[in-house]
Simulated assay, not measured.
Amino acid sequence: MAGLKAAVARLRRELASYRVEFTDRAVAEEEIAGLAALAAEGSPDPARLRRSLLLIASAVGSVSALAGGMRDVRHAVERFDSPAATV
Rank of each mutant, 00 (worst) to 15 (best):
T23K: 13
G34D: 05
V87H: 08
A67W: 08
A59R: 04
E41G: 11
A33Q: 11
Y18S: 09
M1D: 12
Y18N: 12
E30F: 05
E14M: 04
S52L: 05
V8E: 08
L53W: 07
A37V: 06
A59T: 04
E29N: 03
R50Q: 13
V8H: 11
A2C: 06
I32D: 01
P44R: 01
I32V: 11
E31V: 07
A26L: 07
L38V: 02
G42T: 11
R19N: 09
H75R: 05
A37C: 00
P44F: 06
V60Y: 03
A47K: 08
G61V: 10
E78T: 11
G69T: 08
L54S: 14
A84Q: 15
E41Y: 06
R10A: 13
I56V: 15
R19G: 12
S52N: 09
R12P: 00
A85V: 10
S52G: 14
A40L: 04
E30V: 12
G3C: 04
A39D: 07
R79T: 14
V60G: 00
G34T: 03
R79D: 14
M1H: 10
P83E: 12
S17N: 14
A16L: 09
L38A: 11
M70C: 00
S58N: 14
A85Q: 14
R51P: 00
